[in-house]
């Protein structure tokens, strides 16, 4: 049975989800000014998934992320101030301003990197979890991927290897309904990504990705199983993103009012607040205080990112090769 969520855990969960939301809403607004270089793919709406999974992980566990990776980074413990600077292309960024949104990585906290290669995270997690198995420790690896990546050979190969080698890997398919602009009902041949698990000899479950509590329980069971030597699991999170595939996407492929309805009825933060305040575990004032703290944090991160220096020309030649 998954661990019980105490008051501190609930506050931590809310703070993480709120930080992701605030971070993404701010990037959404600032990107429209044209000051942020490159592309950004926002995670707003999917916060419960990254948060509910990563709360079970330690600093020694690894995750592999996607092009939509800000939420995974924050949930795994990457400093949002450094992330904001990275997105603004500043020398103080997590990757010294050289990676940008799609390549934020911080190995110190077990974040293998956002990844511009769709489905690129599966083999990476097979690598870290094979290492864990050889070392004989109890660390695990989580591969986040989307419904588009669910059709990629790399993901199939990774799931196959994970079972063949009985790796402590968890595959989290964040099915937000669209691979770029193509509905998953058109592009995914089976009806649920989780149904593919049986073909790879692992359990597959479907979870409401808007519901933090459902995610937290399911992920807790899968991660416990992996730590105990039970092997890999596939979890399909049914959720949605609030913004386009990338910022600037006109989203003509979505129904009118689709996102607004989700925000009003299924939003993970809304649900969470309603439930924990209704049962008296947390007060609305406590959550409001977190909102204010997170708002100040993100305000500060943006101000700092704007003020910080860009990498110099000399930085072009550093961090190009790594010695092992």
């Amino acid at each position: 049975m998954s661990e019980t969520l105490n008051r501190e855990s609930l506050l931590e969960a809310y703070r993480t989800m709120r930080t992701i939301r605030e971070f993404e809403e701010r990037v959404h607004n600032d990107f429209a000014t044209g000051e942020i270089p490159g592309f950004v793919h926002l995670y707003a709406g999917e916060e419960a998934s990254a948060t509910g999974v990563c709360m079970h992980l330690t600093g020694d566990d690894y995750i592999a992320s996607t092009h939509r990776g800000h939420g995974h980074c924050i949930a795994k413990g990457v400093d949002p101030v450094g992330m904001m600077a990275e997105i603004w292309g500043k020398a103080t960024g997590t990757c010294k301003g050289k990676g940008g949104s799609m390549h934020i990585a911080d190995l110190a906290v077990g974040m293998l990197g956002a990844n511009g290669i769709v489905g690129g995270g599966g083999p990476l997690i097979c690598g870290t979890t094979l290492a864990a198995k050889i070392r004989g420790d109890r660390t695990v690896g989580v591969c986040f991927f989307g419904d588009g990546a669910s059709n990629q050979g790399t993901i199939f190969e990774a799931m196959n290897l994970a079972t063949v080698w009985n790796l402590p890997a968890i595959f989290v398919a964040e099915n937000n309904g669209y691979a770029e602009t193509t509905s998953s009902t058109w592009s995914v041949a089976c009806d649920n990504i989780a149904d593919r698990a049986s073909a790879f000899g692992m359990p597959g479950v479907i979870v409401d990705g808007f519901d933090f509590f459902a995610v937290h329980e399911a992920a807790g069971e899968a991660i416990r199983r992996a730590r105990d030597g039970g092997g890999p699991t596939l979890i399909e999170m049914k959720l949605s993103r609030y913004y386009g595939h990338f910022e600037g996407d006109q989203q003509t492929y979505r129904a009118d009012g689709e996102v607004q309805k989700l925000r009003e009825t299924k939003d993970c933060l809304l649900q969470f607040r309603k439930r924990v305040t209704a049962n008296g575990e947390i007060t609305g004032e406590q959550l409001d205080a977190i909102d204010a703290e997170v708002g100040a944090l993100i305000d500060g991160s943006v101000a700092k990112a704007k003020a910080d220096p860009k990498p110099s020309a000399a930085d072009l030649m550093t961090d190009v090769y790594v010695s092992y």
Partner: peptide, 11 residues
């Protein structure tokens, strides 16, 4: 179990 969570009861 305090929360509805993943709904099923297995313990």
């Amino acid at each position: 179990m305090a929360h509805v969570g993943a709904r099923a009861v297995w313990a």
